[in-house]
Amino acid sequence: MIAKVGFKEQANEYILSKEHRFFQGRMKKGIHKSKGGLIRSFVLIESGQIKEITISGDFFLFPEEAIFKMLDKLKGTPAIRDEIQKNIEETYRIENIQSPGTAPSDFTESIMKALEG
């Protein structure tokens, strides 16, 4: 139906090397279930601040790309509940985020579980 030329298909080698890179880090993992879905956080802390953070989950959030802004903004944030919550709420406000069944506090909770784990 659709011609497919000029680009490469995904390669398993890439998947595995990326997977290994991901888990080789010292990222802590937290899982929290909101009404809207599961939020898995992977957080790396250095000098009391969030150095790296990634999130995986089956929640809904509009607009979807705002998640990257949320994560970027969290980098450098002190690893303290109030600071994290304030930061996420600010991204919600600026980006006009809607996330049915999931509140900013649910993301905070998932991240805190990673920090406390």
């Binding site: 398993n12 998947i15 997977e19 879905g37 089956d58 929640f59 979807e64």
Partner: peptide, 29 residues
Amino acid sequence: GFFQKADVELNLDQCKDYTITRRISGGGI
């Protein structure tokens, strides 16, 4: 789903004969 990481959500060693992609909406596999 848009927010899911393949290596977190899937046992990739068991998925070699599956075609995998991602959609632009959230939610689960």
